[in-house]
């Protein structure tokens, strides 16, 4: 009796565990299948073709891919130094009475739904940028700034966690030899947690590239490669969010799935690199 229940329990848990694998395989298979008509029609040229004309049944993914990459790069350029600054401040500089509440506030901010960052960008940031740069204040730069603020708490929290893994005894020996805080950071902490920090940054990049709601409001939604980062543009998630329910022909619909598949491949590669290349080393060293 007990053995029968044991067997049932074992196999039930295994079934649900394997269901995660099934969903992932289905995710790739379904997207590939839906994207097939567009792949047959446009081939790999889809990636470099910048013409997106639904009324003529011509679809090129380059403006969306370009927008995704450029807005993510802008976000990373802004967020990385600030996140590392916050991590240094929290792990090395701030006294505990300040570091604990600020650290907790940052972790909570990482949980705020991204659509709220997008609304702030549309109603508060875009008008300010409009006054500075002219135009309508929407575009890759605005999207990049909103994105950088959205990933900042996440990035700062995991970078701080990585820095905390440095054994105190290593730092203390450096201080004991008369090193300044900066020298301890530069020559002890950063070399020790380098791969952890790089992994954290890449992981944040993976989040940023697929982020939809923080950027949809402020991208400006123009289906072309803009001649300046201050002009309206688009990105893969923005195109999907805005056009998915409008796709009226099979080829249009299939082209959107082609974009979704490209986004999945990009984020999958980025996240897998972060997890298995950089963060795994960190985990193994800690044990």
């Amino acid at each position: 009796m007990n053995r029968a229940i044991d067997l049932i329990f074992h196999n039930t848990t295994r079934f649900f565990a394997i269901s995660v694998l099934i969903v992932l395989v289905a995710l790739f298979a379904v997207l590939f299948n839906e994207a097939k008509p567009a792949m047959d029609a446009f081939g790999l040229d889809f990636v470099v073709n910048s013409k997106w004309a639904p009324n003529m049944e011509i679809f090129g993914g380059f403006p969306a891919i370009y927008g995704s990459i450029v807005s993510t790069l802008i976000a990373m350029l802004i967020a990385t130094p600030i996140a590392i600054g916050i991590a240094i401040f929290l792990s090395e500089l701030a006294p505990p009475w300040l570091a604990v509440p600020v650290g907790m506030a940052i972790e909570l901010l990482a949980a705020i739904p991204s659509i709220i960052y997008g609304m702030w960008g549309l109603f508060y940031l875009a008008p300010i940028l409009r006054d500075i740069w002219g135009g309508n204040g929407l575009g890759l730069m605005t999207a990049g700034i909103v994105l950088s603020i959205m990933i900042l708490p996440f990035m700062a929290a995991i970078t701080r966690d990585a820095m905390k893994t440095t054994p105190d005894i290593l730092k203390e020996s450096a201080y004991g030899m008369g090193a300044t805080r900066w020298e301890v950071l530069k020559d002890v902490v950063i070399p020790y947690v380098k791969s952890g920090i790089i992994g954290s940054i890449i992981l944040a990049l993976g989040r940023a590239v697929g982020e939809t709601m923080a950027v949809t409001f402020v991208m400006g939604n123009a289906h072309k490669v803009p001649d300046s980062i201050f002009k309206p543009a688009t990105s893969i998630p923005v195109t999907l969010a805005n056009e998915f329910t409008e796709a009226d022909t099979d080829l249009y619909y299939s082209s959107l799935f082609y974009l979704a598949l490209i986004l999945l491949l990009i984020s999958f590669t980025v996240i897998a690199t972060a997890k298995f290349w950089f963060l795994r080393n960190l985990r193994e060293r800690r044990i």
Partner: peptide
């Protein structure tokens, strides 16, 4: 671990198709 960071809009597109 990878699924946790997969773009949620892609999951929306997947469920739409299914």
């Amino acid at each position: 671990d990878i699924m946790m960071s997969t773009p949620s809009i892609v999951i929306g597109a997947f469920v739409y198709a299914v």
